[in-house]
Design a protein around this nucleic acid. Structure first.
Length: 660
DNA sequence: ACGATTTTCAGCATC
DNA sequence: TGAAAATCGT
């Protein structure tokens, strides 16, 4: 299929900075991939083209689609990665300018939070702690250094946050480590302050493409602005109606700022939707028209009207789940559709429980996507701690983890003593553990155990000179006793096998990606950015997903459950300006559906113990009444409605026959 | 160092 | 309500 005229325009425009406003289902990924092919044809060299996404998954998909379009060899030198991966790459190359040493660590969210907790006042309530951390995060997002944050502090709370921020950054620097936010903040700052570095990177990145632009935060925008420079050779693709991440710092205003900062900016709108039935799209348009808009766009679809949108009133959450499960099972049996053509979408993770139960009951295969902590793979984090420590002896947080798993008779008392000694000499825990005089001040058994641990790391470091990354990691897993540790601590044989597989996959990943010497130093940092592996694909199963996790996906048949005031829109979002974001969330949900959309709500729900009456979501009233078909849960009432419809149908037929 | 009991908290979740 | 974290008790 060929491109439509707006898509062609978006692909061909390479002389001016370009903003592509890509409505839901308008083929934005296709435009980006075609544009990369076009840039290559126009004489841009692949190593100078950068395509940036938000998630690893999106990056992987884009790489695959580009490789299909041009050849695999032509696509290979392209850079297609996440914002954070780009920031990491810059830091690894320019580490000296950032005050980092080679092999620096990237602390994951967990480690960063633990470090923060250590520095924050003790006994702080959870929400106060998070509020404080948000203030620190905001300072980084605003591009303020700790000193600047202290100067800018306007209230005692901000002052407190700024001083914790300063301590926090000092600790990171002692660890020779950065956190996720630093992967954006530090590059943005370096590009801002160092003209020579900026010119060099602008020469390296000759064309920049950005996906999901509405999700960028201010720091990311700053980084981008300096990377593209005044030349503005970039394409930003986004949709303000699909901005659903402002709660984690995304700033859709960035779409506006683009026009301000690049006066020659061209704007192309992709308004033809290739995904939804006309009726579904009309419903989505009518709903989102209740929001104010910066850019007017009118999405249309060439598809037929299709089935009406059904709105079901259910007794309670269980009843709602049963109806969805039964309807999916029934429809699948009737139409022989594939299971993965169905999705049930909901606002909060906890809503999945009733649905899972109902689906199991009717033996429908399902896959729950999203939901964070499900696949927190300890074995990867543990081994990564070893690798981090190997590349960066100053990484205390990696030391604390590695030294305790597997158990080697080093307990909290020993570590506290060690920390005290290390602190008094201003050296890291591992450096302290290596020192004979420190060992002498500890009890003999723990002292010896620490020495053994330090020697083991030193052995690996020497072995690393001649081994490639994959082989070295295999050796670390073996010699650290980690495999035995899994066998000893994990009870189920299946889980043991699964964990070993994961470690095997880690080794393979190192083999695949590790080229050249010192590869491990770079790879261990990249590993921190890798969340899920390429496998654990959902397969042929009904998809259960939160609305957030469903963005970017599409299904023939979508069930949207829990449409009650307080759930969608969510309680907290109803008051402040967040109602609009809730509406966008609903918009995203509707536009996932290609053929049929069923919306349901529960009239009663248990909340924190007791049963509460629920009001149907106000968003239901914002849908076009002509496109929806309401059904209560009262069988009598339903039967009556069906009879009425059948009657009307018959009357229609009779009328038509009469005309003939 | 561990298991039992009490307290707390309840929105999405990337890198 | 119910799960997870914090605290208690041995």
């Amino acid at each position: 299929m060929s491109l439509n005229s707006a898509q062609r325009q978006a692909v061909a425009e390479i002389s001016s900075p370009l903003l592509v406003l890509a409505g839901a289902g308008s083929g934005k990924t296709r435009v980006i991939t075609e544009k990369i092919a076009h840039l290559l044809k126009s004489g841009y060299q692949a190593e100078h083209i950068y395509a940036i996404t938000f998630t690893n998954k999106a990056a992987r998909e884009m790489r695959e689609r580009v490789a299909k379009l041009v050849s695999r060899e032509a696509a290979e030198p392209l850079t297609v990665c996440t914002f954070h991966a780009l920031g990491l790459k810059l830091l690894q190359i320019e580490h000296a300018a950032a005050g980092l040493r080679r092999g620096f660590s990237v602390l994951d969210a967990d480690d960063a939070l633990n470090l923060f907790k250590e520095l924050a006042p003790k006994g702080l309530k959870n929400d106060a702690l998070f509020a404080l951390r948000n203030l620190v995060g905001k300072a980084k997002d605003d591009g303020l250094s700790p000193d600047e944050a202290i100067k800018a502090a306007r209230s005692p709370r901000e002052m407190e946050a700024a001083s914790i921020y300063a301590m926090y950054q000092r600790r990171l620097s002692n660890f020779n480590a950065v956190d996720f936010d630093d992967l954006i903040y530090l590059p943005a700052r370096m590009l801002e302050e160092d003209a020579e570095l900026r010119t060099r990177w602008q020469g390296r990145i000759r064309y920049l493409l950005m996906d999901e632009y509405q999700d960028t935060n201010r720091a990311q925008y700053r980084m981008v602005r300096h990377l593209v420079g005044p030349r503005g050779a970039f394409t930003a693709v986004g949709d303000d109606d699909q901005s659903i991440y402002s709660w984690r710092g995304a700033n859709p205003e960035n779409l506006n700022d683009l026009a301000r900062d690049f006066p020659s900016l061209k704007v192309v709108k992709l308004e033809q939707n290739y995904r939804c039935s006309s009726r579904i799209l009309r419903a989505a348009n009518t709903l989102i028209a209740h929001n104010p808009h910066l850019f007017e766009k009118k999405l249309w679809s060439a598809h037929a009207d299709g089935d009406p949108i059904r709105v079901l009133a259910c007794r309670d959450e269980e009843h709602e789940a049963e109806r969805a499960a039964a309807a999916i099972a029934h429809r699948q049996a009737q139409t022989k559709a594939r299971w993965h053509d169905f999705a049930i979408l909901y606002r909060g993770n906890h809503q999945a429980r009733a649905l899972e139960k109902a689906l199991r009951l009717v033996s429908v295969p399902y896959h729950v996507s999203g939901g964070t902590a499900f696949f927190e793979r300890v074995e990867i984090k543990d081994v990564l701690a070893y690798l981090r420590l190997l590349c960066n002896p100053d990484d205390d947080s990696a030391f604390l983890r590695a030294v305790q798993v597997p158990k080697r008779e080093i307990g909290t008392t020993t570590l506290e003593k060690l920390a005290l000694l290390a602190g008094s000499q201003h050296i890291s825990l591992l450096r302290a553990a290596e020192r004979i005089d420190v060992q002498k001040q500890l009890a003999s058994r723990p002292g010896a155990a620490l020495m053994q641990f330090a020697e083991m790391l030193e052995r690996w470091r020497r072995a690393g000179q001649s081994l490639d990354a994959g082989a070295l990691v295999a050796r670390v897993i073996e010699e650290s006793g980690y495999e035995l540790h899994i066998q000893a601590t994990v009870k189920e044989p299946l889980a043991v096998a699964y964990r070993k597989e994961n470690l095997q996959e880690l080794v393979q990943w190192m083999r695949d990606n590790g080229k050249g010497r010192d590869a491990l130093a770079d790879l261990q940092a990249q590993l921190a950015l890798l969340s899920h592996s390429a496998r654990d694909e959902p397969g042929n199963a009904v998809r259960l997903s939160t609305l957030h996790a469903a963005k970017g996906l599409e299904f023939n048949h979508v069930w949207l459950v829990g449409l009650e005031d307080g759930t969608l829109p969510h309680e907290g979002g109803i008051n402040e300006g967040r109602l609009e974001e809730e509406r966008r969330l609903m918009y995203v949900a509707i536009t996932r559906a290609k053929e049929t959309l069923t919306i349901s709500y529960a009239e009663h729900k248990r909340k924190f113990g007791d049963i509460e009456r629920q009001k149907p979501s106000r968003f239901i009233d914002e849908l076009p009444a002509a496109e929806i078909e309401r059904e209560g849960d009262d069988p009598e009432r339903d039967a009556e409605q069906r009879r009425e419809r059948a009657g009307a149908h018959l009357a229609n037929l009779a009328a038509m026959l009469g005309k003939l």
